[in-house]
Design a protein around this nucleic acid. Sequence first.
DNA 1: GTTAGGG
DNA 2: CCCTAAC
Length: 672
Amino acid sequence: MVVKKRQYYGFNDFHMPQVPRAPRSARGRGLNKIKVEDSQICAFELLASLAGKLLQESESSASSNASEANDQPVIGGGGGGGGGVKFEQDDDRPLKAECLDHGSCGESDFVTQFSSPNSDQKCLLNEFPHAESNSILERSSVITNPNSSKNVGADLKSMICKSKNACENIPGKVEGSLDSRVSCDSYMDIGLSRQKRRERLDNGGLIVDPCSSNDPMKMCMKFPAVINSVNNVELPSCRDPVPSASIPRPPQRIGDRRIRKLLTSKYWKVAPKLKDCEFSKPAFLEGGMNSRYLKRKLSYSRERYQHNTFYKRRKFTDHSVVVTSDGGFSSESVCNSPDKNMTGDKNGAAIMFHGHQAALHSKDSQVKFSIKSFRVPELLIEVPENATVGSLKRSVVEAVSAILGGGLRVGVLLHGKKVRDDSRTLLQTGITSNENLDTLDFSLEPTPVQVPPSLCTEDPLPLLPCDTSQLISRSPTTPIVDSGISDTLPDPAPLTNLDTNIESNRESVSSHADIVTDNTLSDSRALVAVPSVNAEELAMVPLNQKSKRSELVQRRTRRPFSVSEVEALVHAVEELGTGRWRDVKLCSFEDADHRTYVDLKDKWKTLVHTAQIAPQQRRGEPVPQDLLDRVLAAHSYWSQHQGKQHGKNQTAILKITDSHAVRNGVEDIHSI
DNA sequence: GTTAGGG
DNA sequence: CCCTAAC
């Protein structure tokens, strides 16, 4: 087990300098072997994730690594757009597909709690070979043993977020590890440090053996499996937004069922294999940092939400190998069908907080709302044990400020359903009484931004309507960086061509998207861009191929049944009954490739329903009443006769002679 | 792979 | 139409 653990969590071979990447599997590495006490979580994954994100920004990729030829992550895979980050394994197998957000999702990944009371769980983290002063990670990566009085920035977060000073001057000391510090600034820092790292590499590849006991960067990290959270932080008032602070945690309700499903072990293969990955000459280094920096700033709010996402995931998966899907989007998420096109909350995007409203109904035509406070259900604030109360307070303030300062709008939900039409009156909306007010909720959402039409892909994905809600949050403020994989939204071809490994990421990706609205389109692309993942590398990657496929692959186009089709269906059912859809398909829709027997079954279901409702309530192309009558008759008949076994109920059939169904049934029987 | 149902 | 459970 030692070996195994080492493989999973030992970051021995991890060459941080190159790029913090998701240690997917360090298996079989003979280099630097260090025992790891426990394998709960790997901060590295977080780092890796961040790294990946950073890499995304980079335009090009590749390169050879100074240290180990085997461990060379490929950056900017695919079209050279620099978007996708691919981690490769020793054997050249693609380590993992990472969906990285170009420049924006980075920090969130790092927002993790490392300080754990449990000293048992440790992970050896090898740090950057670079000079301490240059690497943020170096500086901060000292994860601490809670027991140790020497905790330096107990968490990875702090380390990552450390200096706000974008410049080289990075505070050598980690301040009270304010988790909330995670922000775009941190991003910058990382970038800088990487830049430096790269420079070093370029200057001779100063890769230090992480395992070296002399390596100052090596450290012991502890990771709590569970994230502590402070619930219900009341925000009586908004203070000055502190952009740099942000570690909002999404309320549980945010995740939609999909997320839950995803997070439940069912879809995840908890195989925390850490891979020794190393990026050499990260492409991102090539690019100008300034522009990226700006982007980061601009996309600030979006990032915040990603934090949330990350947290969410972390919370549900103690093994944390969530890096995989960070920032990922499923095609569905990215480009939803029009009907889903509302605000994105359906996708779990927007709603961050619930406003508490004590509504008072006053007078007849007046509805008085007394919003006592907006609550942050799960704001996660974690600070080291040795942090001061003052720092805790600051952390809270910063986190909260960050949340509120990012530009929010208020959403109104009635009965849990979002009221989207701002033009409607309260009366029209149904907000008129105390009873209703009880079910009224307010939510804080990211301020939507107009989305450039260009973002919507039309052609390649005719069947994949763009979800404006998704796009909204992306847009202008969040520069979309072309990952180089595709120029538009997920393209059909790439998507369908993705191998199963990619698809396996789908679920996680989609779930991710569900709760995160703030993602750039590039995210999805990045995902797509990173095509293959070794099965073994799929640790924490959803295994349910099926579900993934469904999401990656766009939803089928809606193709209303024509009257003639209905007629054919009715006729077939009259003869075959309602339990033999495959036969129905074969008999009457054999040539209709787009109609599966499931479709026929569903259509029948709707036909029955349609026939049972008032004509006024029916929609779509009207179905001749006579057909509906036949539907009812057949439905009734087959219901009584258990369908399926029509041949066996001749007696019963013969007894009933006054309905179409019977008539047909009889014919059928006779024909047999 | 089908069927039956819920979503 | 999708997704799943149950066959």
